[in-house]
Design a protein around this nucleic acid. Structure first.
Lengths: 355, 355
DNA sequence: ATGAAAGCGCTAACAA
DNA sequence: TTGTTAGCGCTTTCAT
């Protein structure tokens, strides 16, 4: 058997090159060291109960002695489960996404899953590439951002046979499982709040809408609400930022006030933009909400700490990640694939001092 | 050949279970569809130049027709290169880390590498587990945060044979390649700035120091500077936050002022804490810098937008990631392993309105 | 330019 | 409880 093993390992090249590169210890090396078969080592790792105390001890010692690290690549190939989960987000520069990813990480690492993360930069084309490469790693699940994907991406995802999660919006038909809240409805609510408070010259500062269904949903909710309330809106008073950063929010408000000095309220569709806008007010001494009201969509911790605190829509961020993690774990236990479904985590409208 | 192939695929179970599960197309399926050998398909993917135009076309068509997605797991096992890079950060909730990861992502995805990301939660023990699992995936490089690691983690990393990057600090001996700036030196500079401005009752709000060399380096730099300048410091005026969040910074300052109302300046070792502290000042109407000066270590965009702008140390964040990516890529091209080295990216002290 | 054979390191299924 | 055999889907090497 030993001879056979040696032959397998080195093949006909055994004479030419005798284990030159100090490759890492393999399961077989551990087996040999422990004086058991390779399968006993494998079992000691997976189902220690099926291995005798004695064997287990010898295997353990051998692993430590050799500094053995199991090759999960080979394990994946042989077992059809990688314990990796692919995640595609537009960018990690916006805390919305990094917090969601942290939630995923916290919920999944403890269950033995690892995260393969890709940034798509708000491009459906890049998302497609990312999904393709991720699928090549045979992940146990794929999590993408939003519900807008290229036709090919959708096909790839659906064909993959693993659970797919679309996170952050539930306004469209889910591909498999959509988790999040209704952006359009939440934006509608927040806008109505402004109107109810008597604001009539409302500006809008949002993210760019190319390849971004969340931004589109928010605009839709905003415009629908104004429409329903019979409040007029000049399209020029809608500013789309690209990229979305604090500084862009500041500049956007600058531009907005420049064009429409009569503006009495501004709807910011992302927290970073709202904070940026508030910074401009502080720099210029614009009193909030007396001179200008600010509302913030998709707020995090900052909105509740600044002065004045912002009236805002709170969407799940970190919880978005943990919810998906939880669902995935329970779904593993359950039977086969489910019908497409939506998990609506809801949102909260929190009234702050800024309106 | 076809018979042989079929035998290999199904083995002795061929009769019992005839390709029930609709598994994904393999390279061999593509080959069959295109009427060429498996190797021609493999070459078409890797070295199209070596394949005839005609074969290439047929292979391309077959791939599209079958929706072929290459199995990178198998590729990794066979080729010894995974094109995956492992990254361990304490948390993605602090923008410092998510920005660095985004930099890595931007620099590496374009080169065809994917990121396997793990959060260690500021625990050396968890870091060790993360490193172990990551190494099991046979990554082409591993990037960890800071220079403080368990003995075992160090061994694992060193033994792995792939380039190792320690990011965010360069105060200690590098394991392989350390990239970042000197936290202690920068903290020293920033503290001296406070002293030079005449502040004498200086408080300190920082991150917790367990398993965190960056936090320790900053404290060291801070205390050394005070010492050198002959300024006294009550240990009670050092507050360590855990976790590090905006709100914690706010509470920490509250606590600090409660204990030492005479405090005239506060050193915040993380931007989130500084912003939190500033929020408290705004809430309470504490005038900055007249009543209280604030300096901020490791600042991002926000520090330059708030009012007053913060006097701060700017460390590379996003650039930390892109620098590592760049070094890794160029290192691939170069020869073998290098001696341990440090890449000092430096820092900038930016004087704001808060001092 | 193309193909056949021999693994990569592991697990699933079967046998003992 | 332990071991044997046959792959997982790909690349490497060698041959044609």
């Amino acid at each position: 058997m030993n001879d056979d093993t040696a032959r397998k390992r080195h093949g006909k090249r055994a004479d030419q090159r005798v284990r030159t590169r100090r490759s890492a210890a393999r399961m077989e090396d551990v087996a040999k060291e422990a004086g058991v078969s390779l399968m006993t080592v494998s079992r000691a790792l997976h189902q220690p109960a099926l291995v005798s105390k004695k064997s287990y001890g010898r295997v353990s010692d051998a692993m430590i002695k050799l500094g053995y690290v199991r090759d999960l690549t080979a394990q994946t190939l042989a077992s059809k489960s990688s314990r990796m989960i692919g995640v595609v987000v537009p960018t990690l520069l916006n805390p919305v996404f990094s917090e969601a990813v942290e939630g995923l990480s916290d919920g999944l690492e403890s269950e033995g899953y690892q995260l393969l993360i890709a940034s798509s930069g708000f491009s459906l084309r890049q998302e497609e590439l990312a999904v393709q490469t991720i699928l090549g790693r045979r992940p146990d699940s794929v999590i993408v951002t939003g519900q807008l994907h290229s036709r090919h991406t959708q096909q790839l995802l659906l064909k993959s046979g693993v659970p797919i999660y679309e996170m952050g919006n539930v306004d469209a038909e889910p591909l498999d499982t959509a988790v999040g809240a209704s952006n359009s409805q939440a934006a509608h609510d927040l806008t109505r709040h402004l109107v109810n408070r008597g604001y009539r010259n409302i500006g809008y500062i949002g993210g760019h809408t190319e390849d971004n269904d969340r931004a589109m949903s928010r605009e839709k909710g905003f415009l629908n609400a104004l429409n329903a309330e019979g409040v007029a809106m000049n399209p020029q008073a809608m500013i789309r930022c690209n990229p979305v950063r604090y500084g862009e929010g500041l500049q956007a408000l600058e531009q907005l006030l420049d064009r429409f000095p009569e503006t009495d309220a501004v709807f910011c569709s992302v927290e970073m933009l709202a904070i940026g806008a508030l910074c401009l007010c502080q720099q210029r001494g614009i009193r909030v909400p007396d001179q200008l009201a600010i509302v913030c969509f998709d707020s995090g911790e900052l909105s509740s700490l600044v002065s004045p605190t912002l009236t805002r829509i709170r969407l799940p961020r970190y919880e978005l990640g943990t919810s998906i993690a939880e669902d995935f774990v329970s779904r593993r236990a359950a039977a086969g694939p489910l019908a497409p479904r939506t998990i609506n985590l809801g949102y909260r409208l929190i009234e702050g001092e800024s309106t």
